[in-house]
């Protein structure tokens, strides 16, 4: 009796299915999840190329996700007529760069001090920092406005330093309050704990200062943590809306998210809304794509270490 390969494969308990056949069942739900996340973006990009009437007509069918119908870049032209979009974009990039840059320095130093240095009250300090996480920003926004309106600053007028009062209508009011971040400090502290302390001790024996240890040992070994904090800091600052509308009145200083509301008049121009949101979403996608490998790596390792 001959046995066909197929029946042999079925009857042989030691036979393992090919890699492809094992992988496909796992890919099906993953593709489903990917569709859920990709389709809103697809809808946004496709709608940005269509006139309003077609957007509203297509929204009831799969055509909403397809580049069909009367396509043009008219909505993008209209966006730049209605909103100083490049100015808003430049403002946001500047603010985000400052917050992320200073945030990485300040929060990593704080995390280093809390995880590597031995000093009295360290545990209490960390507890207090973590406790601030449970306070929603919305509850302290109004008191913060009151405070920043009264904070002093030094301005240089004709190269002469002058003491002024009030931070409203400035870049600094969008930057400085968000540099120190409790979650970033916690994340850095947790990551730094995973680096062997023997490295510190060896460096100390060699005469290294704590700052040298931070800069030459800890920072080079913590790339994923820095990437994660950069992304986690980047997103909320990029999406910042409530704070700017409360503290920035000059159009020239506004960030991109405030610009979204320029389109919601009596008759909402949906094509322009989609064009503008596409315009301000692209940098976010690029930022994530650049850092995603380190981001995923750090999140995974942080999860293991708890």
């Amino acid at each position: 009796m001959t046995t066909s390969p197929t029946s042999r494969q079925i009857s042989d308990p030691t036979h393992r299915p090919s890699r492809r056949s094992r992988v496909w069942p796992r890919y099906i739900p993953l593709v489903g999840v990917a569709i859920v996340f990709i389709f809103p973006l697809l809808f946004m990009f496709m709608s940005s190329l269509k006139p309003d009437a077609q957007i509203l007509a297509d929204v009831r069918s799969f055509r909403a996700f397809l580049p069909v119908g009367e396509l043009s870049t008219d909505n993008y032209s209209a966006v730049f007529d209605r909103v100083p979009a490049w100015r808003f974009m430049a403002n946001t990039i500047f603010v985000v760069a400052m917050v992320v840059g200073f945030g990485l320095i300040v929060n990593s130093m704080a995390g280093f001090a809390l995880s590597r240095l031995q000093w009295r009250g360290r545990g209490i300090a960390l507890s207090i920092i973590l406790a601030t996480l449970i306070v929603p920003f919305e509850t302290i926004a109004v008191p913060m406005v009151w405070w920043v309106a009264k904070l002093p600053w030094i301005e240089f007028q004709d190269f002469i330093p002058t003491l002024t009062t009030g931070w409203l209508n400035t870049y600094r009011v969008q930057i400085i309050p968000f540099i120190a971040n409790a979650f970033s400090i916690f994340l850095f502290a947790q990551y730094f704990k995973s680096i062997p302390k023997e490295l510190d001790e060896a460096a100390r024996v060699d005469g290294a200062s704590w700052f040298t240890i931070y800069r030459k040992i800890i920072v080079p070994l913590s790339g994923p943590a820095f990437a994660t904090v950069a992304i986690l800091t980047f997103l909320p600052v990029w999406n910042s809306f409530l704070w700017p509308i409360m503290v920035v009145q000059q159009e020239a200083l506004r960030p991109v998210q405030v610009g979204v509301q320029y389109f919601f008049q009596l008759e909402t121009a949906w094509g322009e809304v989609m064009a503008y949101t596409s315009f301000i979403t692209i940098p976010v996608l690029l930022f994530f794509l650049v850092f995603q490998r380190a981001f995923v790596s750090s999140i995974a390792s942080a999860g293991v270490k708890g």
Binding site: V142, V145, G166, F241, I245, M246, V247, Q261, Q265
Partner: peptide, 15 residues
């Protein structure tokens, strides 16, 4: 922008 105008005014009044 109209949708957030009142919030801006109230915040300015606080400040």
């Amino acid at each position: 922008p109209q949708a957030s105008y009142n919030d801006s005014v109230v915040a300015a009044a606080v400040a």
